[in-house]
Design a binder for these strands. Structure first.
Lengths: 338, 338
DNA sequence: AGCGGTCGTGAGAGCGCTCTCTCTCCGACC
DNA sequence: GGTCGGAGAGAGAGCGCTCTCACGACCGCT
């Protein structure tokens, strides 16, 4: 087997088929204006030479790459934690892009170095557009890309003074959390704590805001611990809450993964769920059905988020107008933990 | 803000800085042969115009893209299931590529359509090399790519009659499983069942083979159910095993995720673990420490696999010789479930 | 028979970059 | 003072492709 034997070019195929480069290009790109026999000859030549178009050359002239990047400014372990949020988004995005015959390219930008590299990659026109998920703090990336004229859509309202208004897709965090807290109040809970998410992410901020506002309305004290959406942080935060207020009888946790950690701590502390302490999570990941007891949680339509992001981006890339913000609903799923 | 204002080219920068294209190119690419003041002028022009090199044009002439694809022929939900295997591989690959300043590009190729699209992407020279993980059956992809002269490294020995020998990285499945089964035998277990992985994947095949061979050596009957590495399939398989042989007192499960499902079934069936039934998993994902009871399991050095794959690929892409196969060790981690 | 119109094909420019080759200029050496 | 060498800059070819435009062949119409 010849490693890296000379790659055939359009030119080579054209010579072999006895036609011009233009005609080969037409056939390869599925133009219908080529006569049957010639089409056949070109096809055969392509086959025989094992011709594959050079995409760099193509996109140099077309100014398109037909691929879209989904950038996750997270380290791999975070992205793929059993937190099923990313997979869901990816699934949704894939579905939509597949239908449009675009290639999805995933990039992790956890470290500062990779963050830069990804920026160069995107601004270098390696992709036709960029989807951004899980932004931390006031990440300049969306603004930078938008300013370079690259179509961008974010999941979750981008933080910062939005120098360039970037369209985004998000869910109704506040409404969902409000329903959860109300459910706890309605079932007679008095001391309702929360384990909040990281306060440099929209999801973390808004869910805490939802909890605070709902509790304020009912004139109850808020009891807050902060985690980072990981299970381990949920464990620790729960322990902290129990120390702070041993009499708490309910806790709203800003992610199912942290809620799982909280359940472990509660069991260790000898508290029965939901008898002694009611627990409600957020996300409704698959695991929520498998915890002991099964977790009551606020479901967000994760796959839908991905689909909607992709749809908006494709529209943007096609030069069509898009909504500056798409908001999707949340839903309280009642199981056994509250 | 002007959306998509005309992108400046090298030419534009050159004009602005009052030098030639070649000189700008030199500065941009860090050549040292450019005089200080000129370098300065070029830098300023680049800055002012917001110039970013067009990567398609560059790679058209250099024949490099400085990016590497990691292809996962799986649907997103599978890849990102709380099975922590992929994330680990990705982490390892990232570490290694980051050090080499290459961009990692992740691609899912779950559906037939996306499988094709990914193939076109890779053979179209969008990337300098390809890493393949989680191959199913005799996937022709590695062979195809290798034959096109594209550097490829697989995780796990590729199945099929290997028309083109593709280098791979794998772990010692058989040895690890053997140690697990021996541990069960040593602790006095008599009827040892297994929940095997999918039999179209090397990992599934080899782990079952390891179980069979170790059991045969000790002249015990094998009791087999087959899952697909998901938690749900573990649940179902365990129920099946209990039906088949209510007296079983141990089960080796080919993945931690399936082991988790099995634990749930066992609890439902009123069996105590490890008292009535001992359970050993495979992988040692983070969750293994959080199951009830914590899971005894065979650890594989997942991050290491990724690193090794990336290292081999970089070597291959640089034209250096590589080992046809790299084998990494496994280790039995004893917790409470066996 | 002459005309415009259509259809299929080829010629050729050029996408934005890198890189080789050439040219100029200046200092050093005999 | 003349020659040589080397460093720094520019000219220009060309990477592999698409796409516009021009051209020839052939149709049906008057």
């Amino acid at each position: 087997m010849s490693l890296a034997r000379e790659r055939p070019t359009l030119e080579a195929v054209a010579r072999r088929a006895g036609v011009s480069r233009a005609t080969v290009s037409r056939v390869v790109n599925g133009s219908t204006t080529v006569a049957g026999p010639i089409q056949e000859a070109v096809r055969r030549a392509v086959q025989e030479l094992g011709y594959v178009p050079n995409l760099a050359a193509r996109s140099l002239v077309t100014q398109r790459t037909d691929s879209i990047a989904l950038i996750l400014p997270e380290a791999a372990n975070r992205v793929f934690s059993d937190d099923q949020v990313f997979p869901g988004i990816i699934r949704g995005v894939s579905q939509e892009l597949e239908a449009a015959d675009k290639q999805l390219v995933l990039m992790l930008a956890g470290s500062a170095a990779s963050h830069d590299r990804v920026e160069r990659y995107a601004t270098g026109r390696h992709v036709d557009g960029v989807l951004l998920a899980s932004l931390h703090g006031a990440d300049p990336l969306p603004g930078t890309l938008a300013r370079m004229g690259i179509p961008v859509v974010c999941s979750g309202r981008p933080l910062g003074h939005a120098p360039a208004p970037v369209p985004y897709v998000d869910v109704d965090h506040v409404g969902g959390v409000a329903r959860a807290v109300r459910h706890l109040l309605d079932s007679g809970r008095r001391r309702i704590a929360t384990i909040a998410g990281p306060q440099d992410m929209v999801a973390g901020i808004e869910r805490l805001a939802g909890y605070r506002s709902e509790l304020r309305d009912s004139r109850r004290r808020s009891i807050v611990a902060v985690g980072d959406f990981t299970r381990e942080s949920g464990r620790i935060a729960m322990r902290q809450l129990l120390d702070d207020d041993p009499d708490l009888d309910a806790v709203f946790v800003a992610s199912d993964l942290m809620a799982h950690g909280a359940l472990v701590t509660l069991r260790e502390a000898g508290r029965r769920v939901p008898d002694d302490v009611a627990v409600i999570g957020f996300d409704d990941i698959e695991m929520a059905r498998y915890t002991d007891p099964p977790l009551t949680t606020v479901r967000q339509p994760i796959v839908q988020i991905g689909r909607e992001m992709a749809r908006q981006l494709l529209r943007l890339a096609a030069g069509e107008p898009v909504e500056p913000a798409v908001m999707l609903p949340t839903e309280l799923i009642i199981r056994d933990s509250a």
